[in-house]
Design a protein around this nucleic acid. Structure first.
Lengths: 371, 371
DNA sequence: CTGAAAGCGCTAACAA
DNA sequence: TTGTTAGCGCTTTCAG
């Protein structure tokens, strides 16, 4: 019972195209032709080949196929966290557009680690993905940008392309496409909305400090303040993370510090959810005592009570565009676009719900001219 | 300007191992050795080779590698919808465990289409994924099961394996692993919780009618009813979909029909969120007028107000186990487990929050013995 | 319409 | 320590 190793339980041995050819009494070329339906094959022959494939349980080997020529038709997507709805919705767009064009989708999660991000780009290059979509804000760092640039060039030289989705382009000379959203504009608009309601002390809360997403949102926030001549106060800007936990913890802390503010602009809806809980537990009502806004317009914004006023981003659409940009010349209409270097920009707009109201009574919380 | 096609912009030509070898003045075998670090290579030679790789922007071809022997180290996961947190959390577990063992993760979304599900299994087989993880309830259909069984066998014959995650196993004879959760038990427990509070007219709401997940949850619901001697009334069971929209619409409709119930058991938390909105808009308070429970314990359950009482499932853990089960002998401890046929079962438990209270006044809504 | 044969880029014996 | 040499399974001219 041991020795020869010829047992059926030995090394798994899949049927190859050669086995099919032999069984059908044709050449491998013919089998390949029925496989690809790209060349005339006599009906009778075809039936015979298909029969052989079925009997052998033949399954074509995508790697051999990729090696022999035709691309393997995959796109890669790199996100920091797949359960975060911001990324999940973009991923859905990428997956759907990929599937629509007959491609499979390789998903990688970095958990916010830039090192891992670069490693994944390499891995996806090794896989010869048609496109590598890098999603979400990037750290603003010279060395990192250089690394990424080199990879964009390598990818491009090899015939596939890097797409930046929701992060700044690498500059005109780098062969990478980009899908951007009007991040600064959205932040401006929602800050202005708060300002219009009469708020002057607006807390900015959350988001990693050195990431492009955060920087742009704060820029929009500051511009809105400036435009109304409201002095911006550094004590009101508290970056940290894009997490519910951060929103909760920091809000509690600031409330304890008696920091003077009448509204919170959370870096995203998740942070807002955390802040809302802190407010609730402290007995502060939204929006009567404190107004609250978020960013992204993901489902949680509609489930919270009060429902959250926030900035909408067409996330799924961005994912779709990312793969379109990287795989040109496939859709007839856009058959000739610049190969790997286009930039697609989508708009943002605020969605007004129930979490904003005018500040209770101006100067109620630290009455300077109180009698 | 046209014709020769010999321009630098012509067919992208990536450096191959042969180019590197030539440039470094060694053989391809040596290059392969420095690539795989699995064989001694003189330090000086190694440096030279690595230099050549860098200068040429060489990136190894994973397909060639896969063809030549070593597996390509990928796992596939098939879900119906990646933005649905039930699937997203399982996917996270799969991705993390895959990454931990140096694998890439191919994600496919079926949008609930069983046809597409089978097609994706085939596609992932073509990719020679080490494991194919099929997530979520399956339709209960003889022909479908047969199709899936055939694929499980093919996959197994080829040395990789199918893992069913959150759906019933295909039976002992089929070479497929399974990760199950105590679905019926969770449904029983939460129904019993409602019963204990005094509810007798409990509406079951949502979930596709012919899917295993729904069937098991309803089974648990019925068993709990039976055990208390509460007659189960078909008028109280309304299947449909796992969507917020269904929960919203159906609740509104039933409220309009004056259907007599004091509690709702939503098929999952998303459906519960829809039901909650309908209740809210109809002026019914939760839990004072109607109690509400869900299933899955995804984040929305904590954001709703009142917070939702629901059944917790260790989703991420299930994803992890799915890839462990399919890739045995890698972790030392579990080095010898049955190859592709194990079943891992995880428990569920209810999480009590704020959406359940005793029914207002028994027989208030359709007073049979009213004076 | 079909077959023969030359690779695609890499790994892994087997030699040296 | 390094080189030579078969393939891995498929596609694709180029000939029939």
């Amino acid at each position: 019972m041991k020795g020869s190793g010829q047992q059926a339980a030995g090394e798994p041995r899949r049927a190859t195209i050669r086995d099919v050819a032999a069984r059908a009494g044709v050449s491998t070329a013919t089998v390949s032709r029925v496989l690809n339906r790209n060349y005339p094959v006599a009906e009778e022959t075809r039936d015979r080949v298909e029969g052989a494939m079925r009997e052998l349980g033949y399954v074509v080997n995508a790697h051999a196929r990729a090696l022999a020529g035709t691309s393997n038709r995959t796109v890669g997507i790199i996100v920091s966290e797949i359960v975060d709805p911001f990324f999940a919705y973009i991923a859905r767009g990428v997956e759907r557009e990929a599937a629509r064009t007959g491609r499979l989708c390789l998903v990688c999660c970095t958990q916010g680690d830039a090192k891992r991000e670069l490693a994944f780009v390499d891995l996806l290059h090794e896989q010869r993905a048609d496109a590598v979509v890098l999603v979400g804000g990037s750290i603003v760092d010279r060395a990192y940008t250089a690394e990424l640039t080199r990879r964009a060039e390598e990818l491009h030289a090899g015939g596939s392309s890097l797409v930046l989705c929701g992060r700044p382009s690498l500059g005109g000379r780098v062969p990478a496409a980009a899908v951007e959203y009007d991040n600064e504009g959205g932040a401006f608009a929602i800050t202005d909305h708060l300002l219009t309601q009469g708020h002057r002390r607006i807390l900015y809360l959350g988001g990693p400090p050195a990431v492009s997403t955060t920087l742009d949102r704060i820029a929009g926030y500051r511009r809105a303040l400036d435009l109304r001549g409201v002095p911006s106060d550094d004590a009101l800007v508290h970056t940290g993370a894009f997490s519910r936990a951060f929103g909760y913890r920091k809000t509690l802390e600031l409330l304890g510090d008696q920091l003077d503010f009448t509204a919170i602009f959370a870096a995203n809806d998740i942070v807002a959810a955390g802040a809302a809980q802190a407010l609730e537990e402290s007995g502060a009502r939204i929006p009567e005592d404190v107004s609250l806004v978020g960013y992204d317009d993901v489902p949680v914004a509609q489930e919270m009570r009060p429902r959250l006023t926030t900035v909408h981003i067409p996330l799924e659409e961005m994912g779709r565009q990312a793969v379109r940009l990287a795989t040109p010349g496939e859709d007839g209409d856009d058959a000739w676009r610049a190969p790997t270097t286009g930039t697609h920009r989508v708009g943002t707009h605020i969605v007004v719900r129930d979490s904003v109201a005018p500040p209770k009574t101006p100067r109620t919380r630290r009455a300077r001219t109180a009698g």
